[in-house]
C-alpha cells in the first residue's frame, strides 16, 4: 500500500532512455499502473471467490423447498451455466461500461441504484472530510507544539478514548441527545433526489459528526507522530543552532518535509472514512452505498454485493494511489534526482 519510500525505484523500463531521464514520472506511472493491476486482481477475487465458495446460489436463491426443475430454470435465467471465465469476462466487460447487471432480489438495475446512492455516500464523506481534515491537522500541530505538556497529554488521552469508541455508540449517543432529548437535529437522516441543499446538509449533521469523531482521533494522532518524527531530525537541530526562531523552523524547515507524510495520513484516513461510512449509514438509515451493501449481504443478493464491494475497493485503492503519488511528488529526493 502506501509505501512510496520503501519500494525500489523503477528500473530502466522498455523505453529505458525516457524513464531513466524521468525517474519521477516512471515512479508515478508505476504507482498508477499498480493501482489498476490491484483493481483488476480484486475484481477477479470478488468474482471468483464467490464462484468457488460452497453452496449453490440458485438453490439458496429459491430456498430449500425448490424443485430441481425450478433450480435449473433459475440457473439458466441467471446465466450460471456458462463457464466461469466467460461469465467473469462478460461481467467485467459490463462493469467497464458501467453495467453491474441486475439485482437478484428485485430485478432492478444495480448501476442505477449505485448511481443514486454513491452520490449520497460521497456527499456525506466529503463533508466529514471538510470538517475533520483541518481540525485533525490543527490539533496535531497544537499537540506537537505543547508536546509532553498538559495540553498534549489531554489531547492524547481524549483521542485514545475516541479511537476506541465504536461508531454505533457515538451515533446513538448523538441521536439520543440531539434528536430525541433536545430535538435540535433530525433522525433518521433521510435524503431524496430533489431535496434543497440546506435541508440535505441539515439531514447529515449527525452522521457527519459521527464520522468526524471516528476519523478525527486517528488522523490527529498520525499527524502528531509524523510531525514529531520530522522535528527530531538532525536538520531541525541545525536550524536551531543557526539561531532561527520557532516559526521559521516550522514553516521553512519542518513543513516542506512534513507535507508528504501528512498527505499520506490524510489519504489513509479518507480511505478509512469511506469504509466507516457503512456502519454510520446503517445507524442513521441514510440511503447510501453502505446501507445498500448491508441489505444485499443480508439477503445474499450477489450481484449487488459484488458491485458494491468493487466500488468500495476502487474508492479505497484510488485514494491510496493518490496518496502515493502525492507522497512521491512531495519528496525532494525524488523530485530532484542526482
Amino acid at each position: 500500500m502506501s509505501n512510496a519510500n520503501t519500494s525500489p525505484p523503477a528500473g530502466p523500463g522498455p523505453a529505458g532512455g525516457f524513464f531513466s531521464s524521468n525517474p519521477l514520472l516512471a515512479l508515478i506511472l508505476q504507482r498508477i499502473l499498480l493501482g489498476f493491476v490491484l483493481l483488476l486482481a480484486i475484481s477477479a477475487l470478488l468474482f471468483m471467490g464467490i464462484e468457488f465458495l460452497p453452496g449453490d446460489f440458485a438453490q439458496s436463491y429459491l430456498g430449500q423447498s425448490a424443485t430441481p426443475e425450478a433450480v435449473a430454470n433459475i440457473r439458466k435465467e441467471l446465466g450460471l451455466n456458462a463457464p466461469v471465465h466467460e461469465r467473469y469476462l462478460s461481467w467485467l466487460g459490463g462493469v467497464l461500461q458501467g453495467d453491474f447487471g441486475t439485482s437478484w432480489a428485485n430485478k432492478a438495475s444495480v448501476s442505477e441504484q449505485i448511481g443514486k446512492r454513491l452520490g449520497n455516500t460521497l456527499f456525506l464523506a466529503f463533508w466529514a472530510a471538510v470538517v475533520s481534515v483541518p481540525l485533525a491537522i490543527g490539533l496535531g500541530m497544537i499537540a506537537v507544539h505543547y508536546r509532553n505538556r498538559f495540553i498534549d497529554r489531554l489531547i492524547n488521552v481524549v483521542s485514545l478514548g475516541a479511537i476506541s469508541l465504536p461508531e454505533f455508540f457515538t451515533g446513538y449517543l448523538l441521536i439520543l441527545f440531539f434528536a430525541v432529548n433536545w430535538g435540535v437535529a433530525v433522525f433518521p437522516s433521510t435524503v431524496f433526489a430533489d431535496m434543497a441543499f440546506t435541508d440535505r446538509l441539515a439531514a447529515i449533521v449527525l452522521p457527519c459528526a459521527t464520522l468526524v469523531l471516528v476519523v478525527l482521533a486517528h488522523m490527529m494522532r498520525m499527524t502528531r507522530a509524523a510531525i514529531l518524527n520530522i522535528m527530531s531530525s538532525a536538520y531541525i537541530e541545525t536550524a536551531e543552532l543557526k539561531g532561527l526562531d520557532a516559526f521559521r523552523i516550522i514553516a521553512k524547515h519542518a513543513a516542506p518535509n512534513a507535507i508528504a507524510p501528512i498527505i499520506n495520513v490524510v489519504a489513509l484516513n479518507l480511505a478509512y472514512l469511506v469504509v466507516g461510512v457503512v456502519v454510520v449509514e446503517v445507524i442513521f438509515v441514510y440511503p447510501g452505498m453502505g446501507q445498500y451493501l448491508v441489505d444485499a449481504v443480508t439477503i445474499r443478493d450477489m450481484p449487488v454485493v459484488q458491485a458494491c464491494g468493487l466500488v468500495f475497493a476502487a474508492v479505497y485503492i484510488i485514494l491510496n494511489m493518490i496518496a502515493d503519488v502525492l507522497g512521491i511528488l512531495a519528496n525532494p529526493r525524488l523530485r530532484h534526482p542526482k
Binding site: 500500500m1 490491484l38 471467490g49 465458495l53 469504509v275 454485493v305 464491494g309 479505497y316 485503492i317 491510496n320
Partner: peptide, 17 residues
C-alpha cells in the same frame, strides 16, 4: 492484495457467501 480491500467490505462480501 488482501490489504487493498477494506476490512469491513472484505468481511461483508465473504460472510455473505
Amino acid at each position: 492484495l488482501m490489504m487493498a480491500i477494506p476490512t469491513l467490505i472484505f468481511a461483508l462480501v465473504v460472510l455473505a457467501a
